[in-house]
Design a protein around this nucleic acid. Structure first.
Lengths: 362, 362
DNA sequence: CTGAAAGCGCTTACAG
DNA sequence: CTGAAAGCGCTTACAG
């Protein structure tokens, strides 16, 4: 048996603890060449049942799994999709990531997830690192990267961006139905008789926030209510900002009986602030969120919210990037929004109670 | 210029959209060989300032980033750590993942995250896929894999497992201080005068749940309170289970004035159930959770909880796996637990109100 | 149908 | 100090 074992000298293989079998080993066992095994594994050839069985047996025997790096190098692709999330630990993004993972796995891809932390520099670092790692595509799940940068990256690798509308080669965008959702929320409030409807936005120049503000104004105007900029406060997408913005709104002394929050976390904060001021939801103020996080069902009171299936959005993003990778044009739209009425919204009260104290906490 | 451009025929390079520069290109630009550029990049050689500058310039000019697959193949490692999470979209796991990512990035590694979904089969699939992708190590963040399987995997790749104690070569475990945390919680309740303290556990044979039950019993006995198994109900780690278990507890007609929940999500559900029955927290029943999720601060009322920094646990897991990868023995322990007292716990009421209705919802 | 060979882009022992 | 060459483990055009 002339097993010409190459006395490998230079590119010494690293210390793979229990390095797994290679194609060679499997091929030798099955009595064929590595080429053939490769073809069988990839299904690019028709072989006799017997041969196939022999190869399968050898694969099982050595528990062979093709080395992904080698495969990636030879093929020029890695079956990995980079994902730039903004905050892995946010309940909102978590749901989206899960959807992405599910959508990717269905087709044999896996996500390489990194956090952009809502910082342009971090996002840039992420995308570059992802490209360096040879991902086949990148999903930027929201974020602050400029359109120009995004287009630039799309020259190196297919890109899917959620949360804005943008057209460019090798790039696909999936915009959340922000305005529609906001309109749904405010229309519901107006339908309950509310006329003074405040809005707590997210960070000011965020596309989703802008769109939701637009939807809010639209619904107001539809209901014949005049827009009052004093009833708009700025939060930060988190509970903390909801608390602060609500205190500010209360400080203005402007009466409002309903509060539309840019997202559920903001609404949680708003509810807490209202509670601290001795105001009850929904008896004194109706509160409505956006996102319908799983935990909104279990708030006290359960929160009325605009549901946009973020998990579904993640899954569609996954399918879109795979379309792009395969050279197809994705043709999907963001999942539609839907109002979920729970117990934090109710009819407009005759007169609203005065908050316990109007000053803000130091 | 005899640029022997190889007319590459077989292993045709894949269709990398805008394929980036290679070492060759950079080397040619800088007037040196690829070997030298490689050495400079990896800092395995001392070169003149001038040369270094020339190479750096060429790298910048072509925006060169070493191909990760090629590097991985040559080196036998990928600078990627596989992570088996149970539920990417859980607020609890999200925080841990963020810690892992942060800990890994500090040292140039990136996480490849997959969801085990609390199912043994899924977890096995994850680990195998991760190994096939050539990750340098695997962090199993909690999960149901048997000790035996884990030890087996540790023969192929270093493994860090959180949530249980296990010793084996190339394996390191980090156990959450469950019992200590539970003791803290129950001692706090006992200190407030409570004598009938109920407990809602997670899934029954889960190691963390078992440990927390142990801590609960320990604290009870320390306070001279007899353990009553009827005051233990089974939840599911989620809000839904908290609701159900609380209804069951109420159904027993056994008086209890305090409720220790195996985790915060369970406590959220318990609070909602109590509220539905017309019982207030903490006036009628004190409720305490475990995990101190970020949103617990913003519950109504803000939830008293046992804080175990899960982000910190993630970061330590990351450092532990890198120690293992580097052939060092990790020497870290799980972060300590700490009681965070908020407004869901208060003194034992003289007499507890009777729930609005004792029957369970159909 | 199937094998030998070249190539993917990097790293590094060896030999100047 | 630095280059040529071999090797990491795959895939596939080419030639039987």
């Amino acid at each position: 048996m002339k097993s010409k074992l190459p006395t490998r000298i230079p590119g010494k293989s690293g210390p793979r603890p229990g390095q797994s079998a290679t194609l060679r080993i499997v091929a030798r066992e099955a009595g064929v060449s590595a080429s053939t095994v490769s073809r069988i594994i990839n299904g690019t050839v028709n072989v006799s049942e017997g041969l196939k069985r022999a190869v399968d047996a050898a694969i099982v025997k050595f528990d062979f799994r093709p080395n992904a790096a080698a495969r990636g190098l030879a093929l020029g692709r890695t079956s990995t999709i980079g994902v730039v999330a903004q905050a892995i630990d946010s309940p909102f993004y978590g749901e989206g990531l899960r959807g992405i993972e599910a959508g990717l796995r269905q087709r044999g891809y896996a996500p390489l997830i990194m956090s952009g932390n809502w910082r342009v520099e971090d996002e840039e670092r992420c995308v570059q690192e992802l490209i360096a790692r040879g991902v086949d595509g990148v999903i930027v799940f929201a974020g602050r990267l400029s359109d120009a940068k995004l287009k630039m990256y799309a020259k190196s690798v297919p890109v899917v961006i959620t949360g804005r509308r943008l057209r460019a080669p090798h790039l696909f965008s999936l915009q959340i139905q922000d305005a529609e959702g906001a309109t749904l929320a405010v229309r519901h409030l107006a339908g309950l008789g509310h006329r003074q409807i405040a809005f707590i936005t997210g960070s000011e120049n965020h596309p989703d926030a802008i769109e939701r503000l637009r939807g809010y104004r639209q619904a107001l105007s539809d209901a014949g209510i005049e827009f009052n900029p004093k009833l708009v406060a700025v939060g930060d997408w988190h509970e903390e900002g909801g608390v602060r913005a609500t205190m500010e709104l209360l400080d203005t002394k402007l009466e409002f009986t309903a509060l539309f929050c840019v997202n559920d976390q903001t609404a949680y904060g708003a509810c807490l602030a209202l509670y601290r001021q001795g105001l009850s939801v929904p008896q004194d103020v109706s509160v409505i969120g956006f996102d319908d996080l799983p935990s909104s069902t279990y708030r006290l009171p359960p929160l009325t919210s605009v549901r946009q299936s973020i998990g579904e959005l993640g899954e569609r993003s996954a399918h879109a990037i795979l379309d792009l990778v395969a050279g197809r044009r994705p043709r999907m739209v963001a999942p539609s929004v839907e109002l979920v009425v729970r117990e934090s919204t109710g009819p407009r009260p005759e007169t609203r109670k005065t908050p316990r104290r109007s000053g803000r906490n130091a």
